[in-house]
């Protein structure tokens, strides 16, 4: 059986995806990761995909982001554990406290966005939380796409700066 659709696209672009993953920080593991990626993706393909190559790239990109985030989380857990050892008595943070901290973080994120003004906050929410295309956001707000882009950039900067502060 000749491969069709996304499989054909995958096979034709396998080398490019390996190169991408290597540059993306996977190094020598890029070959293995590309194979993992395909196994994962082949299992949950439903419906036609508009741009299969971009879809594969994005999936590879997200795979690396997930790896980064889970690595960072593990490091944080280790660090917490080390601190707990240090404090002997202190068990893990109680759930209520953790929920409170999470809520305070969300409030700071929201405050950072609202401080930029109503439009940048709306643009960020529509684009990044709700996944609305920028063209549509521009139409809804009656502004140009470049305004939407610059609002988005401004919001992203503010959030990156906040992240620097709160870790």
């Amino acid at each position: 059986m000749t491969p069709t659709g996304i499989e054909a696209v995958f096979l034709a672009n396998r080398d490019k995806l390996v190169r991408f993953l290597a540059a993306r920080g996977a190094g020598d593991a890029a070959e293995d990761l590309v194979q993992d990626l395909w196994v994962k993706m082949a299992g949950r393909m439903d419906g036609p995909i508009a741009n299969p190559l971009a879809y594969l790239y994005r999936a590879a990109d997200m795979l690396m982001i997930d790896r980064y985030r889970s690595r960072r989380q593990a490091e944080r857990r280790d660090q917490d554990w080390a601190e707990d050892q240090h404090l002997q008595e202190a068990g893990p943070e109680p759930p209520a406290e953790r929920a409170l901290v999470a809520r305070q973080t969300a409030e700071r994120v929201a405050a950072t966005l609202t401080a930029l003004g109503e439009r940048p906050a709306t643009v960020f929410r529509r684009a990044r939380i709700e996944g609305i295309p920028q063209r549509q956001i521009a139409a809804e707000l009656g502004v140009s796409i470049s305004t939407v882009e610059s609002d988005l950039r401004m919001a992203a900067h503010a959030l990156a700066a906040l992240k620097d502060q709160i870790g």
């Binding site: 985030r69 969300a106 994120v109 929201a110 929410r125 939380i129 992203a156 992240k163």
Partner: peptide, 16 residues
Amino acid sequence: ALLDAEDSLRAHPDVI
């Protein structure tokens, strides 16, 4: 940094 902020907002939709 962006995803963390977004996840945080998603988990607390009332804050915005």
